[in-house]
């Protein structure tokens, strides 16, 4: 899939959790959402973007969520 579209979708998820007071928990929620609703090829692609492209374009909180909690 177009990586820009995946970045945009992941950032939207990050936006939802931005106002949560416990940002550590928010990271788990962001990754949890991706694990629960994104197909494996999409998760692999976004994870690859983080490892190979430094997560360019992704909000820092989303990058951290992917690094720490994404199942691929």
């Amino acid at each position: 899939m177009d990586i820009q579209r995946l970045i945009s979708m992941a950032n939207q998820i990050g936006d939802f959790y931005e106002s949560y007071p416990d940002q550590s928990h928010a990271q788990q929620d962001i990754a949890g959402h991706l694990n629960k609703f994104w197909a494996l090829p999409m998760r692999k692609q976004i994870a690859q973007h983080v490892t190979e492209q430094g997560g360019f374009g992704l909000h820092p909180q989303v990058q951290n969520a992917i690094k720490s909690y994404l199942l691929v």
């Binding site: 899939m1 177009d2 579209r5 994104w38 197909a39």
Partner: peptide
């Protein structure tokens, strides 16, 4: 594994 949604299918 969760599957593709309609827009994901179309993108793929």
């Amino acid at each position: 594994e969760p599957g593709l949604r309609i827009p994901n299918m179309l993108d793929q």
